[in-house]
């Protein structure tokens, strides 16, 4: 592996990947919209082609970047650009979740009490439309949309999931220290353990969803509680899945010996992402499950 030339900012030549992935995203979304509008077959076909295009491009694009990195094209300044890119990407994800948390807080602080008759606004709504509805949380609203439901305890699976994700954050950090110390065995082991913890989390969550649907009648349709619960935990689960895939790619790259103790930004980026997913979970555990 040649040393990067510290004086050179690498500007790549023409690349076909950006426009290909844009086409892939376009097909994916056309397919999804077509499917949602009820044209199942056509929708599924276009959606699959789009998804495959996106995946294919990601292999090609990341492959290019890895290649360039292995050839030592990236100096410290390029590295800094990548770091900023990842950092602000994660920031934008934080704000994506903020939208749903903001919605949840607004609902719980204002909407539900108003529906229950608190304040000037509430007196009218409650008195004229939904007399007798009293505010509580969880709720599926004055008309009990989705039927009566119950909610599992936060101290069962959710607590277990918290412990799983927290320990996976520790293991990924141990793996990172091992990488910097050049301890390959420890690195492979602890990175693998991180992935396993992530997958266990996903299995627990799937079981929790199944339990909620089958035994507690707590579904997407269960009024505002079901809506906020599933959109927050669901998008978080999606991010854990993505994180686990990224960690697995890192594991394969570690096995292939792509990283050196000094030069392993991809690994760091993925571990940042993993910590981010962890922090979001802590907020979820607090505001969705406990409070």
């Amino acid at each position: 592996m040649s040393q990067p030339d510290a004086n050179v900012y690498y500007v790549p030549h023409d690349s076909r990947w950006p426009i290909f992935i844009a086409i892939g995203m376009f097909l994916f979304m056309v397919g999804a919209a077509t499917w949602l509008n009820g044209y199942d077959t056509a929708g599924h076909i276009v959606l699959t082609i789009g998804a495959l295009t996106i995946i294919g491009v990601m292999f090609g694009w990341f492959g290019n970047v890895i290649n360039e990195s292995m050839k030592g094209r990236f100096n410290g300044q390029v590295d800094a650009s990548f770091r900023m890119g990842m950092m602000w990407f994660i920031m934008s994800e934080v704000f994506f979740f903020a939208a749903f948390f903001g919605g949840l807080f607004y609902i719980r602080t204002f909407v539900v009490p108003w529906l229950g008759g608190v304040g000037d606004k509430g007196v009218l709504t409650n008195g004229f439309i939904w007399q007798g509805f009293s505010a509580a949380w969880p709720t599926n609203g004055p008309e009990a949309v989705g039927g009566s439901f119950s909610v599992g305890s936060p101290w069962g699976i959710p607590l277990l999931n918290t412990l799983l994700l927290l320990s996976s954050s520790v293991t990924v950090t141990i793996a990172h220290h091992a990488l910097r110390a050049g301890n390959r065995k420890r690195l492979i082991g602890f990175l693998g353990l991180t992935i396993l913890l992530g997958l266990t989390f996903l299995c627990c969550q799937a079981y929790e969803y199944w339990e909620s649907y089958v035994h507690l009648n707590m579904t997407l349709h269960s009024g505002i509680y079901g809506a906020t619960f599933y959109i927050l935990t669901g998008f978080h689960g999606l991010h854990v899945t993505l994180g686990a895939i990224m960690l697995s790619v890192m594991w394969l790259r570690v096995v292939r010996g792509h990283f050196t103790p000094q030069h392993h930004f991809a690994f760091e980026a993925v571990s940042w992402y993993w910590h981010f997913v962890d922090v979001i979970w802590l907020c979820l555990f607090m505001f969705v499950y406990i409070l």
């Binding site: 939208a99 903001g102 919605g103 607004y106 609902i107 204002f110 909407v111 539900v112 529906l115 709504t125 709720t139 599926n140 609203g141 004055p142 008309e143 949309v145 989705g146 997407l220 349709h221 009024g223 505002i224 509680y225 079901g226 809506a227 906020t228 599933y230 959109i231």
Partner: peptide
């Protein structure tokens, strides 16, 4: 089938306006 913006289910269409 969610009910973010349906007051009968405890949601609120004004929540959309805030977000």
């Amino acid at each position: 089938g969610t009910n973010f913006f349906n007051a009968a289910a405890g949601g609120d269409s004004v929540m959309y306006q805030h977000v």
